[in-house]
Structure formats: structure tokens, C-alpha cells
């Protein structure tokens, strides 16, 4: 066994048809996520049912023309709540994700680009934040500040921003060693401009992939914490909360749990698919660049 066995062979970029297919998948997956979100907003304006209006005479009705998915234990229309719940869950997930990105990216950029003391300080802080699992932080915050979707989002941001900052930092660390960054400096570009124009585009791909994979996790987290009562409070329609509401009627009306459950599962799956597809895409692009 000689040196040749240890030699890594360059993997060829995917064939054209493969790229085209994965692009299609990306679009489909993204569309689906969009659809869920827009349908929820749409439902708010158009559907004739008030999602929070209780009508005890109409409780636990089966499917009908008026209530295609039936009604829940307080007589509220399940379809309306399901659609609106999607908007809640997805909206808060995106809000948490966005906030984590807005905090994490500049932090990582500056730490990776400036290095030295700033970077060491940042790493200490980041390690501190990483020490706590997200669920624990959420539970503790709810205990301190009271249960509610706002505090849940805050908890998610506190936990998640670190991973973006670290990802950005590591990319920037290696990228800013390259000569083109040195050239940019000899050309008198300001640090802010080097970071935004020369380094930011490199991290966009990685961050997007991580974010889309995280989206699924955050949806799941919000739903599960709402399920145990730490997230969305009644009567807000939220998938996890809806699951919890329907628990007592599991024997008689199992579909009440199946609907939100399926909604959660399919949305998380789609978010993960989107992440996978994005990852493939960015990998292919990297491969094509020598």
C-alpha cells in the first residue's frame, strides 16, 4: 500500500441533470413553506370563522361543509385554527431565526476578522452560552419572566445566535487569510467594507444552509414548548397548544390531534428538505470552484 492509496481523488461536480433536479426540489420545498405561511395570513382575512370565538353548542363537531375539519372542544373551527397556527409557529420561528442571524453574523464577522483580544473574549462568551441546552434556557426564562411566546422566542435567540456567530467566525478566520483580503487592505478599503463586500458573500451560503436546517428544529421547539404550556398561551391558535388542547379527547376524536401533529411533522420535514437541497447546491458550487 503506497502513497497512491492515500491520495484523495477530486470529486467531479454533479451532472447537469442532477443540479437541475435539486434546484427544482429547492423551489418546491420553499414554495411549500411559503404556502403554509401565506395560507395562514390569507385565512385571517377571508375565512368566516373567528379562530378564538368559543361556541359551546358547536363543540367537537365532525367534518361538515361549514367546518371541513370539524370543531374543537370549545366549538372553534379546526381548519381556521390550523392555518392560523401555521402562521404563528412559522412566523415566530422566522422571527427567532432572524434575530439570531442579526446578532450572530456581525459578532462572528468582527471576531473572525479582528482576531486577538476581541476574538478571545467572544469565544469565552460563546462557550458560556453554548453550555445551556435550549430547552433548559426556555424553561428557566419562562419561570423568571412568565410563560409566553415572546419569552420563548427570546430564549431561542439567546441559544441560537451563538452557533451563527461561530459558523461565521470560522469561515471568516480562514477566508481573511487569503491574499485578496490583503489586496483589499492595500487598496485602502475600510474594515467595514472588507467585511460586508468581501467576506459576507462567502458566509451567505453556509449561513443559509444552517438557518434552513435550524428552522425545522425551531418549529419543533416552539411547538413542543407550547405543548407543555411554556409557549403560546390560550386562546392563541398554535399547533403545539392545539395538540395539548385535544389531548383529553384522544379517545373520541383522535383526528383533533392528528391534524396539528401532521402539520408539525410535514412543516419540519419540508424545512429540513429545504436545508438539504440548499446544502447540496452550495456544495456543488464550491466543488466547481478550484
Amino acid at each position: 500500500m503506497k502513497t497512491m492509496f492515500l491520495r484523495t481523488r477530486r470529486i467531479r461536480p454533479e451532472s447537469k441533470s442532477g443540479t437541475r433536479k435539486s434546484r427544482l426540489q429547492a423551489i418546491v420545498a420553499a414554495l411549500f413553506v411559503l404556502l403554509v405561511a401565506s395560507a395562514s395570513v390569507y385565512a385571517f382575512g377571508v375565512l368566516k370563522h373567528d379562530p378564538t370565538l368559543t361556541d359551546l353548542r358547536a363543540r367537537l363537531l365532525g367534518a361538515s361543509a361549514l367546518h371541513p375539519f370539524g370543531t374543537d372542544h370549545l366549538g372553534r373551527d379546526v381548519l381556521t385554527r390550523l392555518l392560523l397556527g401555521g402562521g404563528q409557529t412559522l412566523g415566530y420561528s422566522l422571527l427567532a431565526l432572524g434575530a439570531a442571524l442579526i446578532i450572530g453574523i456581525p459578532f462572528g464577522l468582527i471576531a473572525g476578522y479582528k482576531r486577538g483580544r476581541i476574538d478571545r473574549l467572544f469565544m469565552r462568551v460563546a462557550d458560556g452560552f453554548l453550555a445551556f441546552p435550549d430547552t433548559i434556557v426556555a424553561i428557566v426564562l419562562s419561570g423568571l419572566l412568565g410563560a409566553g411566546i415572546g419569552n420563548l422566542v427570546l430564549a431561542i435567540v439567546i441559544v441560537k445566535w451563538v452557533s451563527y456567530a461561530r459558523l461565521v467566525r470560522s469561515t471568516v478566520l480562514s477566508e481573511s487569510q487569503k491574499d485578496y483580503v490583503a489586496v483589499a487592505r492595500t487598496n485602502g478599503l475600510s474594515d467595514a467594507r472588507i467585511m460586508s463586500r468581501h467576506l459576507l458573500p462567502h458566509i451567505a451560503g453556509n449561513v443559509l444552509v444552517l438557518a434552513s436546517l435550524d428552522l425545522g428544529k425551531i418549529i419543533l421547539l416552539i411547538s413542543s414548548l407550547s405543548y407543555i404550556g411554556l409557549g403560546a398561551q390560550p386562546p392563541t391558535p398554535e399547533w403545539g397548544a392545539m395538540l395539548n388542547d385535544s389531548r383529553p379527547y384522544f379517545q373520541s376524536r383522535p383526528e383533533l390531534m392528528v391534524y396539528p401533529g401532521l402539520a408539525i411533522v410535514s412543516t419540519v420535514l419540508l424545512a429540513n428538505m429545504l436545508g438539504d437541497v440548499l446544502r447540496d447546491r452550495f456544495d456543488v458550487k464550491k466543488e466547481a470552484q478550484p
Binding site: K178, D179, Y180, A182, V183, A184, T186, N187, G188, L189, H198, P201, H202, Q289, P290
Partner: peptide
Amino acid sequence: RRKIQIVFQNPAAALNPKLRIRDSLLD
């Protein structure tokens, strides 16, 4: 800075891969 410029060994690393040639030249 304008008075002194450099050409590096490895042009692959000395050009920002995400910038078009035009933009690298204009910088």
C-alpha cells in the same frame, strides 16, 4: 497606498471568487 501595489503568487487566492473580474478591477 496608491503608490505601491502587489501581485501575489497564487492568483486563485488573490481574487475574490465571488466578485466578477470587472468589480475586482474597479476596486
